[in-house]
Structures are given as structure tokens and as C-alpha cells.
Amino acid sequence: MNFVRNSVIPVGTVLIGILALWYVFTVILNAPFERDQAARANTTISTSELIANTMRQERPVLPAPHQVAAEIRKTVFDISPTSKRSLVYHGWVTLSSTLLGFGLGTLLGILLAIAIVHSRTLDKSLMPWIITSQTVPILAIAPMIIVVLNAVNITGLLPKAMISTYLSFFPVAVGMVKGLRSPEIMYLDLMRTYNASKAQVFWKLRWPASMPYLFTSMKIAVAISLVGAIVGELPTGAVAGIGARLLAGSYYGQTVQIWAALIVAALMAAVLVSLIGLIATFVNRRMGARA
């Protein structure tokens, strides 16, 4: 009951509010076109007709939510997933490179963090560069990587996955360095009195202690991987993927298609992030952490 009062009702109200605002803006933004049409046909248009018309334009400035929902239903459920017009097909293209890049990036980030924690030289010389590189708009390089790799005949999944890797390894590396250093000196001293080897300290103390940090940074990393995959699809000339749908939609003024692709991307991000949240809860519970 508490859950309903403290989250379902407020969140639901806010969502309904957003939806209502969306409809209001649909009418406001699409009305000039309808008035223009009416003026051209030398007819006057009643207000109720105007409002109804704003919600079923072919290429509206802002499509109404139900138009977007219909487009999603059409492209997700009605068209077979193997067709190039199916959003499932494009979503899968984006998702596969996101997951590949995210996996590689997480692995790379963890390995880098382990090296940094165990080597003072790397910590002092490499770590400042990792932090600096976070301030660099890496996403801007994305199109170049794709085109350059295409020029040497590396095409398909790998170039896009490389962008996701590049974006996702920073948060993981920084988070894991923090996590592997999180055990207090007291515990480290205790391991010393047990005469534990470096490997034992790592597997029995540092690694378990870093788990919360790992999952927090993995949530950031998976979200940014998806952004990387979408932006990576822009320069290949709108072949396949969510990014390609966005670009094609903006070329041909298909606003409904853009919004449908955006909503699907948002849903994908939400599902991926909450999936990692679920795994984190499971792992924490297995490790005996308090909920």
C-alpha cells in the first residue's frame, strides 16, 4: 500500500501530466498548418474540427501520442521482424552492437582498473589521462571511426561496437578503480596479518568490495553504449538501426517515424538499465548485503 501511495500515484500523475501536455502542444504546434489549409481552400474551420484535424496529419510538426503508438504497433507487431520496415529488425541491429560494445568495454574497463590499482606507475601516469578523456566529446569521433573503418573494408557490427566500447570503458574503469580501492585499511591490514598473497587479497577482498561500484558504473556504461551505437549508425548512410531510422526520418520529414524510433530507443535504454539493476540486486543479495 505504501508503494502505491509513495510511487505509483505520484509517478502516474506526472506521466499523465506529460501526456496531457503533449496533446496540448500537438494542437498548438499543428494548428497553423490546418488554418493555412483552410485559408487556401477559402473555408472556415470550426475549433472542434481544427483540434480533430491536428491529430491526424500525415507529417505533423508534433505527432499526437496515439499516432506514435499506432506507428510503433504497426512497425513492431504487424510487419514481420525480418523486413527492413520493421522496427524490431532495426532495434535488433542497434541492440546487438550495443551489447557487443558494452561487453567489450566493461571487460576492458575492469582489466584497466586492475592494472591501475596494482601499479603505482600506471596510476600516476595513465589515470590523469583517463579522467581527461572523459571531458572530451568522444561521440564526435564516432562518424569518423565508422567511415575510416569502412574505407579499409571493416564493416558491419564491429565498427559500431568499437564506438560503444570506447564510450563505455571510461565509466567502468573509473568506477572500478574507486571500487577496488574501497576496502578500508583495517581490512587490508587484516589480510596482511593472514599472510595473504596479492591474488588472495584481490579475489577475497578487493573484488567483492568493488561489486556495488561495478554495477553503478555498468548502468551508466550501458546507457552510453546505446547512445554510441545510435550515433554510430548516422554516417553509414542510413542503412539499418535506430540511428538510421532517425536520419531517414529527418531526410523525408517523417516525424511519426522519428518519434516511434525515439520511443523504442528510450524503452530499450530503460529495459537495459533496469536489467542491470536487477542483476545488481541479485548479486548483492547472494553476497549477503542488506537490501
Binding site: 500523475t13 545510435i230 529527418s250
Partner: peptide
């Protein structure tokens, strides 16, 4: 508002907002 808007805000912060660019 805090109870309702914060979860939504957290979600939006993780979304690929860049995609709004063509619109």
C-alpha cells in the same frame, strides 16, 4: 512532485536524448 518527477527524471537522464536532435 518530488516523488513523481524524480523517477521520471532519473529515467530521462539515462535515455539517448541526442536522438531528439532531428526533431
Amino acid at each position: 512532485l518530488r516523488k513523481g518527477l524524480l523517477p521520471v527524471g532519473n529515467l530521462v537522464a539515462a535515455l539517448p536524448v541526442v536522438g531528439i536532435a532531428p526533431i
